[in-house]
């Protein structure tokens, strides 16, 4: 699992850790059933507070990418495969947007808008 954090960034650290796990799943570096390192290991390696890492894992569990298993710790769910499956589409979309002169933020806004359309 590859984790990147930037203590100078606006996003809180737990958000950045959770984002790293999502990116790992999207890149196919870790797949369904893979065990995440223990929160203690992550906190020691990144030199951040244990609760920060626990909060990130909690966030991922709430969205369904991670489940807590007795004796095995945090394990990725099938959702990791969905992330990996969609990542090529996402890259293609960003590429097209860039050709049309739109940035990533614009793509995110578009996705949000179309998401709320389908929900309505």
């Amino acid at each position: 699992m590859l984790i990147r954090i930037d203590s100078g960034a606006d996003a809180p650290l737990y958000d950045q850790i959770a984002g790293s796990v999502r990116e790992d799943a999207a890149a196919g570096r870790i797949g369904p059933g893979a065990r995440l390192p223990s929160a203690r290991e992550v906190s020691e390696a990144l030199d951040v507070n244990l609760h920060t890492v626990l909060k990130a894992y909690q966030l991922l569990r709430d969205e369904g990418l991670v489940e807590m298993r007795r004796g095995r710790g945090a394990v990725l769910t099938e959702m990791a495969a969905a992330y990996a499956g969609l990542s090529a589409d996402a890259r293609a979309l960003v590429e097209r947007a860039r050709e049309a002169g739109l940035g990533v933020d614009a793509v995110v806004a578009l996705l949000r808008a179309s998401g709320s359309d389908t929900r309505a």
């Binding site: 590859l2 990147r4 930037d6 203590s7 100078g8």
Partner: peptide, 15 residues
Amino acid sequence: PLATAPGTRIVWLGR
């Protein structure tokens, strides 16, 4: 190399 922006920490953890 996996380049990192200044100020960014990067760690790979696994088994």
